[in-house]
C-alpha cells in the first residue's frame, strides 16, 4: 500500500558546503533536522525551534537564516553552508580563531549559528561599527558569554580583513 502523500519523501538536491549532495525528506522535515540527521552535520545546533534563539542559523544562498524555520524540501537547488564549511584541513578560520582568542564562546552551543551570521553580515557590511555588530548579535541568544568577547573578536576580524595589502611582497 502506498503511503499518504504527506509522508512520501521528496528528493532534495543542493550544494552543501561546496559539494553537490542529494537526499530525500518528508515535506515536514525541518532543514535543521535534515542537516543533522541525514547529512550528519551536527554543528547545526537546535534549541528553541521557533526562530527565537538563532543557534540553528545557516546560510542559504549566502543569506543567514534560521534552519528551524526552513523546510529541507525548500533548499532544493540552493546552496547551503554550515559551520562545517569554515575550517579547512583542520585549520580554524580567522573568525573562529578570533572567537577562541577573545573568549567569544564558553559552552559553544550558540557559536555555530553566530559564526554563520557573522560571515553573512560581514559580506554585506564589511566595516561595521560596534553598534552595528551588537545589533546583528541581537538576533542570537548566548547564555554564557555576555557577548563582549564576541564583539571584540568580530572587531579584530574586521580590522584584519580590511588591512591594506602590501604593495611589495615582503
Amino acid at each position: 500500500m502506498s503511503q499518504p502523500i504527506e509522508n512520501q519523501k521528496q528528493q532534495v538536491n543542493f550544494t552543501l558546503n561546496g559539494r553537490e549532495v542529494g537526499g530525500s525528506a518528508e515535506p515536514r522535515k525541518l532543514l535543521s533536522d535534515f542537516l543533522r540527521q541525514e547529512m550528519a552535520l551536527t554543528g547545526v545546533h537546535v534549541s528553541c525551534e521557533h526562530g527565537i534563539c538563532g543557534c540553528c542559523t545557516v546560510r542559504i544562498d549566502g543569506k543567514a537564516v534560521r534552519a528551524c524555520l526552513t523546510l529541507a524540501v525548500q533548499v532544493d537547488g540552493r546552496r547551503v553552508d554550515t559551520v562545517e564549511s569554515l575550517a579547512h584541513a583542520g585549520e580554524l578560520s580567522d573568525l573562529q580563531k578570533a572567537f577562541r582568542k577573545h573568549h567569544g564562546l564558553q559552552c559553544g552551543y550558540c557559536t555555530p549559528g553566530i559564526l554563520m551570521s557573522v560571515e553573512a553580515f560581514l559580506e554585506i557590511s564589511p566595516k561595521p561599527n560596534e553598534e552595528e555588530i551588537r545589533d546583528m548579535l541581537g538576533g542570537h541568544i548566548c547564555r554564557c558569554t555576555g557577548y563582549t568577547g564576541m564583539v571584540r573578536a568580530i572587531k579584530e576580524v574586521v580590522e584584519q580583513r580590511n588591512e591594506p595589502v602590501p604593495l611589495i611582497e615582503v
Partner: peptide, 12 residues
C-alpha cells in the same frame, strides 16, 4: 524596518 525581527530573520 530595522525593528522587524533581526538581521537573521529579515533575510527570509
Amino acid at each position: 524596518v530595522p525593528h522587524i525581527g533581526h538581521f537573521q530573520t529579515r533575510s527570509k
